[in-house]
Nucleic acid binder design. Sequence first.
DNA 1: GCCTCTGGATTTTTT
DNA 2: ATCCAGAGGC
Length: 717
Amino acid sequence: MENDILKGLNPAQLEAIQAPDGPLLILAGPGSGKTRAITHRIAYLVRAKGLSPWRILGVTFTNKAAREMKDRLNQLLGPTVAGQLTLGTFHAFGAKVLRVDGVGIGIDRAFAIYDDSDQVALLKACLQDLSLDPKKYPPKAIQNVISAAKSHLLTAEDYIQKTSSYFEEIAGRTYERYQGRLREAKAVDFDDLIMLPVLLFRQQPDIAAKYQERYRHILVDEFQDTNIAQYELAKVLAAEHRNLCVVGDPDQSIYSWRFADIGNILSFEKDFPDARVVYLEQNYRSTKTILEAASHVIKANLERKPYNLWTENASGIPVVLTEVYDEAEEAQFVVAEVEKLVGQEKRRPGDCAIMYRTNAQSRALEEAFLRYGMPYRLVGATRFYERREIKDALAYLRVLSNPSDGISLARIINVPGRGIGQRTVEELSTWAQHQGLSLYAGLQAAVKGETPLPFAARTRRALQDFLGVMENLRSDVGKVDVVTLLDTTLQKAGYKDYVLAEEGGDERWENVLELRTVASGHLDLSPEEGLASFLEGVALVSDVDDLDQRAEAVTLITLHQAKGLEFPVVFIVGMEEGLLPHARSRDSGDPAQMEEERRLCYVGMTRAKERLYLVRAFRRSFQGRSGPNLPSRFLADIPRHLTTSPKGLLGAVEPEPKKLSLGPNLEPGDQVRHARFGEGTVVAVFPSGDDREVTVAFQGTGIKRLLQSFAKLEKVE
DNA sequence: GCCTCTGGATTTTTT
DNA sequence: ATCCAGAGGC
């Protein structure tokens, strides 16, 4: 067993895994086996050092990374032992701490977790409380200020102390109000999940000691993307045993705009002067050519510690630089190239990924993939948990779990429409606020006629009906399981009928059913805990997390989201000035932001194992207007001998010329089968050049427009 | 209270 | 081009 843990590893990896107790900094280049090192170190601590797995905390940035780590450790240690490890994101860990020990700093056990849009909604209410004009003080901007403050562990009081401008002064006051409102709503935001545990540990050393004693070893992944608060949390936890192991790569730091601080790596060496430093420099992922090309791009950054990434992999083939006319041709080129690779090299679509700087770029690509019937998956465009129907359904449950949650209540009080208008909610909310009551309590008072508010009889009746439904449902909380609760709620609140009645309602309802499936994963707990853990789970999980790479589809993904992934074939599109580097970074005049753009490019390039394409369009439409673009400066940093430009210059790329074989004659009403989408009904058929565009309503997948020559539709009877 | 129109703003977004 | 929020009309 122990042999397994140390087998097939290089000397640097072994050093990282077997490093004696004490602070440890692992600087790991892309593809250098960092996840392997960190999981094997955990296994080594358990197996060779006899450490109880219960005493190990592993922190990652995404749930996906946590799950990967868990899978590997299940294999190395077996599920029984691995199950005792604490593995998760900083936020999930923080939530656990607050759930168990937050009462000491006034955090209710049933606290809700507010996401971005909840925060903005709450901030709007705060601005209104303070009679501030949201045009002058945009809630988004204030949210950013508050998030920055919390990422630096500054409470509202701390922040107000150091304000130095009028705007900051206002922001400070709003922060204070916001925090008060959060408390009243028994809610915390994402940043609180980090900051509050730190404050808790500072204020209550006995509680801190409990965690410090328990966790003998703490390991932090993606350390280059931690913020000050997260680093502080890790340090506090490690204060007793000083066994803090951090793994990161400064060259892959791409989240500074979320207040991640590369400085943490430097601080680590200062905070722990005795830290052992291990470099993982051998790359197992990419060809020599790809690695060298990427190295030349990153090398141009001045603020960096150079290190020497190398590989024993084959040289491979040159990086392909392609110039196309515009985004439509770019998309066509990509699809045609993927098709060629699938046909000639027996690649699978799932081997390929298309990466871009901004989400808006996915549209043209998506269109091409759709039209050519090439399967693709778009990562994180409209994120599952941000969909309206999902947020609504969750808001109902959140109110049932925590009636103080005014933001959630305001969200669903008139959804579906039940005659409770904005005006009514506003008046009710203001009155409740003045009485020191939650919106829900205000609603109860209004129904009992205990408010001076002159509501019309009709309004009063609407409020009464709504409260009746909610009270009824509330009596089920703690009695019925979370799935039953969800079902009854959507039924009794009339939400199901409401969703199904609207345009595209079937698809929306499918989403709700998917949510229901997620809920059914919490049935092993008591009704109360099941509800709580479901709500916490959905708050802390993003759907990007379950990107299934085995799927037979090309991945469309932003460069940011691609971090940590790898693909045999990578296309980076939009290699243009203004996009990559993005104009916002370029024009900010801040060299640090330009360096981050370069790192982003580096991250993208180093995702590729065998084939890398860098595509640049001469002209691109941008927010309705179209204009010429210069090639990205990063292209100029790649030595010519590593590249090839097979198609020559502008406009030379033709989409694969195809013999059109249209297949069966189709007309509306016909049943057809598609290799990926399954069976469906033809809705419409239009001629499109030599081809036919067929609109098909697929069972489950919904309505798709396909070009018949590519989609290879079979007629079924 | 609900519907429609207009105007403003649109990088990235692990949680 | 397009999505969203807020304003104004019914």
